[in-house]
């Protein structure tokens, strides 16, 4: 994506954030991180490094043990429950464990995200069809998600996260079960959201193939600490070829 689309306005600002799961698992320690509006950011790190925890903190699924998190300039700890719900409508999250409803169809699972925003039936149908085409799932539209393969479920989770054209998309391990061709579809979806709708995109992954060649910012977590990833010189990465 064009670098100049990134603003200097942080969308997410974490200040000295520590998350300790009871009794004493320090998943994140003293993390300070700014994610700018319109940015695509890769969050990397070994298994257990704290990637999922950071994403859960950003969407209020967990609260930090200490430290402060601002999203769009608002301190998350001060937002009312109703405010959090409103905020969640603008944040798309593709969970590592998908969190789909197995007994509902692909279409139903995706449209649910738009229904809570009271979108019109027509808008929902069009958007879902569009996403299914982009992710090569059109023939699975009316299948129960429980009957799909892991890779297909993963894409349904992504489609649901992208449905509302969110201003922030948090994707936790979005390509873990995908082959190279399908991974490209996912990356294309991210790029499309980012370029067409200015969405900020955070991708937590240990799939080096998707960030190895990228010109986007990469931050690495290890054992709950943030370590600056050596910045690569912007190259025309294989996966980001226009």
């Amino acid at each position: 994506m064009p670098k100049d689309a990134i603003t200097n306005e942080p969308l997410i600002e974490m200040v000295n954030v520590t998350k300790i799961y009871p009794p004493d698992v320090a998943a994140l320690q003293d993390i300070s991180l700014r994610i700018y509006k319109g940015e695509i950011l890769f969050l990397t790190g070994m298994s257990g490094a704290g990637k999922t925890t950071l994403i859960k903190l950003a969407c209020c699924l967990e609260t930090p043990t200490s430290g402060r998190i601002d999203v769009a300039g608002r301190d998350l700890s001060l937002i009312s429950p109703a405010g959090i719900q409103r905020m969640r409508q603008k944040i798309g999250v593709a969970y590592q464990d998908f969190r789909l409803l197995d007994k509902q169809t692909v279409f139903q699972n995706i449209s649910m995200a738009m229904e809570v925003t009271y979108a019109s039936t027509k808008a929902i149908r069009e958007r879902v069809e569009e996403l299914l085409t982009m992710l090569n799932l059109s023939d699975k539209r009316d299948k129960l998600t429980g009957d799909l393969s892991r890779g297909e479920q993963q894409r349904v989770a992504l489609a649901r996260a992208a449905a509302n054209r969110p201003s922030l998309l948090l994707a936790d391990e979005p390509t873990g079960n995908l082959d190279l061709t399908t991974t490209k579809l996912v990356i294309n979806l991210f790029r499309h959201l980012n370029e067409e709708h200015g969405s900020t995109i955070v991708v937590a992954t240990h799939d080096e193939s998707i960030y190895a060649e990228t010109e986007h910012r990469v931050v690495a977590l290890s054992n709950g600490h943030l370590s600056d990833h050596p910045r690569r010189t912007p190259q025309q990465g294989e996966l980001f070829e226009a």
């Binding site: 109703a82 719900q85 409103r86 969640r88 944040i91 999250v93 969190r99 409803l101 509902q104 809570v116």
Partner: peptide
């Protein structure tokens, strides 16, 4: 139950 949990994650309001 599971549907309500998901709805909550997706930002469904109290009224919804």
């Amino acid at each position: 139950q599971s549907e309500l949990e998901i709805l909550k994650l997706l930002g469904a309001t109290r009224a919804y």
